[in-house]
Nucleic acid binder design. Sequence first.
DNA 1: TGGCTATTTGGTAAAATGGCCAAGGGTATG
DNA 2: CATACCCTTGGCCATTTTACCAAATAGCCA
Lengths: 112, 112
Amino acid sequence: MNRAIQEQFEARARVLKALAHPTRLFIVEELSKGERCVHELTDQIGADMSTVSKHLSVLKGVGIVRDEKRGSQVFYSLRMGCVLDFFDCVEAVIRGGDDATCKPRKRKVQRL
Amino acid sequence: MNRAIQEQFEARARVLKALAHPTRLFIVEELSKGERCVHELTDQIGADMSTVSKHLSVLKGVGIVRDEKRGSQVFYSLRMGCVLDFFDCVEAVIRGGDDATCKPRKRKVQRL
DNA sequence: TGGCTATTTGGTAAAATGGCCAAGGGTATG
DNA sequence: CATACCCTTGGCCATTTTACCAAATAGCCA
């Protein structure tokens, strides 16, 4: 496998890896409803705030979320809403249905 | 976070985690062109066959691929082609473009 | 300034992951 | 039957990931 191709798959894997954690998936879903500060997310998740902060930094690292500091709080929002489209397919995989059970949700392309 | 919800995000994470590896992404892309036996994939990947076999077993474990033994060979094929849809969005994330740069590919829902 | 809230960063221990080698079980072939 | 091939599994080690605590940083307000 040639080097450039290899690098491309590694880049893809980095993005998927960033999503491949229950807490981070929860964060993505939550942010799809609107921006949230670290404190709010921490309350819902019930882990240490430092843990949540690190999860957010992983998502930010690959460009899935964006942060904005306002006052003493940092608000996170979804930058790539397209990742939400994964969920229908993922659910279909979980159900073990065939490919046809994966109906893409109607997505309005929205600037977040 | 309630227990059932928690479990749902864990299930989703298991599927994404199965995809979150360069070699496994390569396998998925390769299988999208048609079934392949372990030997063929091993040649292309250039790793030990046992390593490739384990990657295939991870993909099979979550239901993304299917295996079929014929003679002394085992042929793997893509069971959930919908995962291919992820790639456009993932590429958009890599490019760092905004959401709109993620154009869903025209996908024909095909029974594999 | 001092104290309080909000968040990130560093350290560390436990668990999970990934890769290779070796061994084992089928299957074809001579 | 013996041998060669195809594939999977188990063992082992190195690396990565994750979570918590503690400490550091930054903004707010009295």
